[in-house]
């Protein structure tokens, strides 16, 4: 009797707790009608990537008559927000689409962040003269292609206190491309996403 009562109570508590939890579900990434969040989520990044890419495609800057592709390096895209996320989640959309357009090649030999550099490029060259490797298959000197353009920018978060005590959060996505030979800014786009939330809602 003494053992049965606590067991029933524990089972009852377990049932109640199980009923309180939200079951895990997959997000429908193509038609996500889930509630908005104060921070940046994948929908914001996709929206910003889409807007900036369309600006670049419409500008005509990528069009070349010689059939050659531009060589792009990914420079520093600063995360100037209190949120912890890798800005590659934005730039990956950009570089993927630029490569798919057939007008841009992205170099992995040179990039601002380690994650955008492929260390195997140097590692494969370190075996020059190593008898263990067939030297005919080792990359020759003077083969790497230098970038013609650099993508860089930043994501800025600005919070404004509203008259009713709530807060307004403004996200500025600023992306630029520089022509490396001349140092001239070749293209730029700023895209803004604004949200309003309760003052106590954290964005991080």
């Amino acid at each position: 009797m003494n053992r049965t009562v606590p067991a029933i109570a524990a089972a009852a508590i377990a049932v109640v707790l199980a009923g309180c939890t939200t079951p895990t579900t997959r997000i429908d990434m193509y038609n996500d009608h889930g509630p908005q969040v104060a921070g940046l989520d994948y929908r914001d990044l996709q929206e910003a990537a889409s807007a900036t890419l369309q600006s670049l495609f419409a500008s005509g800057r990528l069009d070349r008559t010689d059939g050659q592709a531009y060589v792009l390096t990914v420079g520093r895209v600063a995360n100037d927000t209190p949120q912890h996320f890798d800005t590659d989640t934005l730039t990956s959309y950009i570089t993927e689409e630029l490569m798919n357009s057939g007008k841009v090649m992205v170099t992995s030999a040179m990039a601002a962040s380690e994650s955008n550099r492929d260390e195997m490029i140097q590692a494969a060259r370190s075996v020059r003269g190593d008898a263990e490797f067939n030297q005919a298959t080792v990359a020759k000197t003077g083969q790497l292609v230098a970038p013609t353009h650099s993508l860089y920018g930043k994501i800025v978060q600005r919070e404004v206190r509203m008259d009713n005590g709530d807060k307004q959060i403004e996200y500025y996505f600023q992306l630029r491309i520089t022509e490396i030979a001349t140092g001239l800014q070749w293209w730029q786009k700023q895209y803004v996403i604004g949200k309003r939330a309760d003052a106590k809602t954290p964005t991080w």
């Binding site: 889409s50 890419l53 993927e96 689409e97």
Partner: peptide
């Protein structure tokens, strides 16, 4: 297929 084809407000 493209990220350009996402819902825009």
């Amino acid at each position: 297929p493209s990220v350009v084809s996402t819902w825009q407000p």
